[in-house]
Design a protein around this nucleic acid. Structure first.
Length: 422
DNA sequence: TCTGGGGTCCTAGGACCC
DNA sequence: TCTGGGGTCCTAGGACCC
């Protein structure tokens, strides 16, 4: 029989808020929130008032009148998150970072060096606290699901090790919402069936339940119940898509609006693609309709082409076309509140490959292919702009069609706050 | 009062190929 | 030939996570 794995999930507590309190000691012990219009993160002092991430700033102030809002030091979040990951790497090479502030570790092979999971978990927490100054919670179990649940139970600032012979006892009384993938919608549906705990879910033989959860989630819950989750900790891994969105309140659809917003989004997305040496074949746009007093319905349109795209103009052209086709399908909708662009089906696109004009112009498609002379020209323009921006800043230069300034209400640091490993 | 932005994964239907 | 089944790719929508 194979060795039973030992998996840790390490998760920084109230990360952004904790960093703010670390940087500014006068904030320690106070209810604070990072963000403004929306709470990105709340300190534990604020959470005690009911303030939660994702909440509107207005609502948060109602719950906690003494709440202090602080600006986000996003570079610091990145830096400190990286430093924590470095510490984790001291315990095993098998570290899978899943966001800026959390990671899985497979320490199965490290036990003989550092001791059992309790000891490794405690040592991680001690080092992160002493060397960086941040609280971190750790869960340990024989698989990723269970370790993640354990770290949630351990919060705030705790350590929970699920013993191999105590997994079912640990799991069954917990609320179903702790299962990764069961959110508010599914939770409400389960509650209608009288299912509130993981134990109740595992015991349920309701056939309709499986279809409610979907095959994948059903299998996951089944695996959780039998405790035979097979997912491995896999280090590395790059994002599978790159996207950007812009919410601008209720606006009437116009050519100017679409051109400006799509242009800005395409500029940002294409720039990030090029920076990462990547390009993508599938371009997806999302349009959210604005309905006063109700959550706006959103629709998507996508296009997959033969070639991977990373030039600003090509991305903007395709995206604009998709937005108009989405709008054409809903002629009664005259107001929108959000536009988004995403590029997926990504491939690595070394710069050299694009610099060489190898293809011939395509007659069938108006959009130049990347390797064609026209495509190369577009890439050369982008490359120049990237270079100028790298030297003089993002506002230094841009396409005439891209409205600089009109969508700068949110700082670039905020935009670039990607909750993914770099 | 549906609040921001960047992501992942799943499902279902249709096209197409063998 | 319309008949079966399987696989892959694409598209659209939705739930979820941080």
């Amino acid at each position: 029989m194979a060795v039973r794995p030992t998996i840790l999930h390490a998760d920084l507590d109230a990360f952004y808020a904790s960093v703010e309190q670390l940087l500014d000691p006068s904030l320690r012990g106070l209810p604070i929130a990072v963000g403004g219009g929306v709470v990105l993160a709340a300190s534990y002092e604020a959470k005690r008032f009911g303030v939660a991430g994702g909440m509107s700033g207005h609502r948060a102030r109602q719950l906690c009148p003494s709440l202090r809002f602080v600006g986000g030091h996003f570079r610091e979040y990145m830096r400190l998150g990286d430093e924590v990951m470095t510490i984790l790497g001291d315990f095993t090479p098998f570290v899978q970072r899943i966001s800026i502030d959390e990671a899985f570790l497979d320490v199965t092979g490290s036990l003989h060096l550092f001791g059992p999971a309790e000891v490794i978990g405690a040592e991680i927490r001690r080092r992160v606290r002493e060397e960086i100054g941040l609280p971190i919670s750790v869960g340990a179990a024989s698989n990723k699901h269970l370790a993640k649940i354990a770290s949630q139970v351990a919060k705030p600032d705790g350590l929970v090790v699920v013993p191999p012979d105590g997994e079912v006892d640990f799991l069954h009384p917990l609320p179903v919402g702790l299962v990764w993938g069961i959110g508010p919608v599914t939770q409400a549906k389960l509650a209608e069936r009288g299912i509130r705990t993981i134990g109740e879910l595992a015991a349920s033989t309701d056939g309709a339940l499986r279809s409610l959860l979907g095959a994948a989630l059903g299998a996951k819950v089944g695996g959780l119940a039998r405790n035979d989750d097979q997912r491995r900790v896999r280090p590395g891994g790059r994002a599978g898509s790159v996207g950007s969105q812009s919410a601008f309140g209720r606006r009437e659809v116009s050519e100017e609006l679409v051109r400006e917003v799509v242009g800005g989004l395409a500029d940002r997305v294409a720039g990030r693609l090029r920076k990462g040496g990547r390009a993508g074949r599938t371009i997806t746009v999302r349009v959210r309709f604005a309905v006063p007093g109700a959550p706006g319905r959103s629709i998507t349109r996508s296009h997959t082409g033969p070639d991977a795209v990373c030039t600003t103009l090509t991305l903007a052209e395709v995206a604009e076309r998709l937005v108009w086709s989405a709008l054409a399908d809903h002629p009664s909708e005259r107001h929108i509140s959000l536009l988004a662009i995403s590029v997926s089906n990504l491939v690595d696109q070394p710069v050299l490959q694009l610099e060489l004009p190898v293809g011939e112009p395509t007659a069938a498609d108006e959009t130049p292919r990347p390797g064609s002379p026209a495509g190369s020209a577009r890439w050369a323009v982008d490359h120049s702009i990237d270079a100028v921006r790298a030297k003089f800043g993002k506002g230094a230069v841009g396409y005439a069609r891209v409205a600089l300034g009109s969508h700068r209400d949110v700082p670039d640091e905020f935009r670039e706050l990607v909750e993914k490993p770099p």
